[in-house]
Every structure is written in C-alpha cells, then in structure tokens.
Nucleic acid binder design. Structure first.
Length: 420
RNA sequence: GUGGAUAUAGCGCAGUUGGUUAGCGUGCCAGGUUGUGGCCCUGGAGGCCGUGGGUUCGAGUCCCACUAUUCACCCCA
C-alpha cells in the first residue's frame, strides 16, 4: 500500500464542487475588479526565493522543497506566489506596459512543514498582485477585493487586522528604539528572539513565547515611528477602508514572516478553525521587484489559503448539496432498450442537459437507487412497454410525480419534451 | 525541530482482570416487491486488529522499538 504523501490532501469527486464554488467566486470577483489571471511555473530557480522572500525567513531557511535538476541547476517548488509573479513581471517587461498591472492566480504552493489542522505541505492560494501604484488607493483596492470575495463566498466572523511596518528608513529608527527598549532584558528572551535582535528586530514583536511577550508588552509601536510619508500613507489606507465600510482593527503586533513587505500589512483571521487562524495575509512590497533585479516598482497584494477558507465554510455549514449532480438518468431495463436509452441520453447531452444511463447492467431497482445516490433530478425507465408504446414516463425524483413523454418528441427536442 | 494523543472493515467506532470462529453503526452488493429510489426487513461481501520483536499454554488486549496519523508549539495561507 502506497499512501498519500504527508501534508497533502486528495479532493474527492464528491467534494470537488466546493473547490469549484470557491474558485468560481474568486475568478468572478477578480474580474469585477479588473484583475486578470496570471500563470507562472510551479518551480523556479532557488535563487529567486532566496532574494525575493528573504534569507532570514523560516520559509527559505527550512521549509523549501529544493532539488537539483538533471542539468545541475538548483530548483525550488514555489513556497509562495508573489516572487514568481514579480519575476514574470520583470522578465516580460511589464513595467513598460499598461500600469497598474493587476493579476490574480489560483495555484498550489509548497512548504516542508509539520502538518496540523489548517497547515499542509501543499496548499492552494488565491493570490492577487497589483503593480505600479504607491497610492493608498491600491492598498485599499486590494483589501476591498479580498473583503468582497470573502463576503460573496459567505464567510462570517473574519476579522481584518491592519498594520504598517513602514519603509526601510522608519523601520531602521524603530528597530533602534526597540533594541534600546529591550536592552538588558535580551538575556531573558528566547534563542530565536536573540537572533532576531541582530537580524530583524521587528520580528521579535511576533514572538509567542510567554516571557518574550511580557518583555515586549510595553514596547514602542512601529506606528509611532513612521516617517511622514509612511504615516500619511497608512492614514490614507484607513480612511479609504472606512469610507468603503470595511471594518478593521489596528494590530501593531502583526509584522508577517516574509521580508519583502513594506508599509501596509494585513490579515483576515478566523477563530473557528484551530490554531492556524490566518485565512488571508498580504500587504505592500515596494522593494521586491528591485530586490530581484528589476527597477523600483511599488506593488501590493495578498495570498488567501483555499484549504483554510474551506475549513471556515464547512464549519459554517454553507454547503447544502452538490449542485454538479447529473440532471437526467435513463434506466434501460431490458437488453432491447439499451440502444434507445443510449440514443436518448446522447440526445439530451447534445443539448447540454447532463444525462447518464446504466453501464453496470443492473436491475431497475438498483438503477433507481443509483440515480437517487447520484443526485439525478429526473429519471426515465425504458423497457418493453415503452418500446411498444413509443413513449415513457419521466419521474421527478424529488416530488415523485411522473409525466408522459413521447420518444419521438424527446429525440427531436429533449429540452422541450422535458418541459425545460 | 519540540511536546502530547491515537492506530481494529471504505468511513465512524466498541472490544471486560489476557481465553478459543473479532463485533456494532454506516456505506457497498443482492433479495423481500420476477418494471421503480428514499423508509422498513433479510442475507452477503469486506479485517494479517499499523509493522517488527518480547512476555505467556494463549495477545486486538500487557511490555519495547519502529512507522504512520493527528493536535499543539514554532511558522504561515
């Protein structure tokens, strides 16, 4: 028995409609906002993620699926979606094209993690990227898109947490202030925080260790250190969100784990799905394009975890019945009826009416039972009687009502014969 | 990488202080109704009790190791 790799999930035929639903809403909402789909490779040169995502991040340090290909190149399955899009943007000269460049993707990403509820080694993201604007309007637009998507898909009780981590200038000042504040307490902090203290002090705010949290509790806030431009920007985003009627909470502790973020960072979180509550995370990354070899280009976007979203949706019981079930089932119950059943089935299909017939050589009873389980809306039974009469009855599986249908009429126009 | 829990039929579970052919629910197949689903009744198929060792006359049950799953930490979607 060979089983599924750790941290991956099968989507069974009986569940795929849930994915289609979520992906459909994602595409619809993206289109409503004027975003077009972008598709980039599943793997990239490892170098891209080292430079793009940041060498101090956990993702790059210990979670990448990196391998050497047969040509001796180091390749990595994408651990997130943004870097690949940025590479694509530069490589295709899109900075010379129409700006803003607004794109979305639905793709799987890979991280070598210890799986748990809401955390997988392969998961899927609905991601959105907007290039070319440094205006707060772009931040608000992207957050609005996420919000609209979540509304439409039917989730309730998600909280939008918002913060600004400033630009490299104000962050440097903040880092100094934070270091000064921690000062002698550094020895009392956890090992990772002591390391963060040197490499990326901001991330100390993100530590969950009880001791570290206590030390950091009264620490200065990044928002008090923003330079004038960053401050104005952050206020602009808040004003636009308020005007759009999108509720949010300022959360000075959220800093996010990818190095490319500047200024705005945000998360949509749920408290319904266990410890991994972040369903959507994103922000602005004005320096990413430059970091991987392009010209300076402001950008903002988010990634939204489909599996986690589905956990929330299933939790809220929003899936009633599979809407993708076959409409018509035709049950031949003697050998002579089979060719006709096949013909009727194909006539329906030709008009776009989903239809199936028996391929198991089963009894009437078994066929009806199957039609019921398959969720067929109406069923027709064809036997010697019907062949002789040139007509059959279609039965509504929900109400049990039957109506007479002429075989000729059905073959001529299945849609009309069924009263559609 | 760290810690806890669990592992018996496709799925969900029971299995007494160790005792002989390992059960229940559900799902699946068939029959009751020789041409009609759902409800009901009857029957059937389907298990090397995670793997390997040990204790014992005897292990699903006790001990050890391994593996897998899972939850949490960490991190993130």
């Amino acid at each position: 028995m060979i089983n599924i790799p750790k941290g991956t999930k099968d989507v069974l035929p009986s569940d795929s409609y849930k994915w289609h639903y979520v992906e459909g809403v994602a595409r619809d909402v993206a289109a409503l906002f004027g975003f077009k789909e972008i598709r980039t490779p599943t793997f990239e040169h490892t170098e891209l993620f080292l430079r793009g995502v940041g060498e101090t991040t956990d993702i790059v340090n210990k979670e990448m699926y990196t391998f050497e290909d047969k040509g001796g190149r180091s390749m990595t399955l994408r651990p997130e979606g943004t870097a690949g899009v940025a590479r694509c943007f530069i490589e295709n000269g899109l900075q010379q094209g129409v700006l803003p460049m607004k794109a979305y993707y639905l793709a799987s990403v890979f991280r070598y993690e210890r799986p748990q509820n809401g955390r997988l080694r392969e998961h899927h993201q609905f991601g959105v990227e907007c290039y070319g604007s440094d205006s707060p309007s772009a931040d608000a637009e992207v957050i609005s898109l996420a919000y609209e998507f979540l509304q439409r898909v039917g989730v309730k009780g998600l909280e939008l947490c918002l913060n600004s981590i400033g630009c490299p200038d104000c962050r440097a000042k903040f880092n100094e202030a934070l270091k000064a504040y921690i000062g002698d307490n550094l020895d009392a902090m956890c090992a990772t925080c002591r390391e963060r203290f040197q490499k990326n002090p901001l991330r100390i705010l993100d530590c969950k260790e009880e001791g570290c949290r206590r030390i950091v509790a009264g620490a200065p806030k990044i928002t008090d250190f923003l330079c004038d431009d960053c401050k104005t920007h952050f206020e602009g985003v808040q004003e636009l969100l308020s005007a759009a009627g999108i509720p949010f909470r300022i959360a000075p502790m959220i800093v996010r784990g990818l190095d490319y973020y500047t200024r705005t960072v945000f998360e949509f979180t749920s408290n319904q799905i266990g410890a991994q509550g972040t369903v959507c995370g994103g922000g602005r990354y004005n320096n990413l394009v430059e970091q991987i070899g392009g010209k300076h280009m402001p950008a903002v976007g988010f990634g939204l975890g489909i599996e986690r979203l589905l956990l929330v949706l299933e939790n809220a019981d929003i899936f009633a019945a599979d809407p993708e079930c076959v409409y018509l089932y035709i049950a031949p119950i003697c050998a002579e009826a089979r060719p006709l059943a096949q013909q009727l089935t194909n006539a329906a299909r030709a008009l776009g009416i989903s239809a199936e017939t028996d391929i198991m050589d089963r009894s009437v009873k078994a066929q009806l039972k199957y039609a019921d389980r398959a969720g067929a809306k109406i069923v027709a039974v064809i036997g010697e009687d019907e062949l002789a009469r040139g007509a059959f009855k279609v039965k509504d599986m929900h109400t049990g009502e039957e109506r007479e249908t002429q075989i000729d009429e059905f073959l001529a126009d299945p849609s009309r014969a069924l009263g559609l």
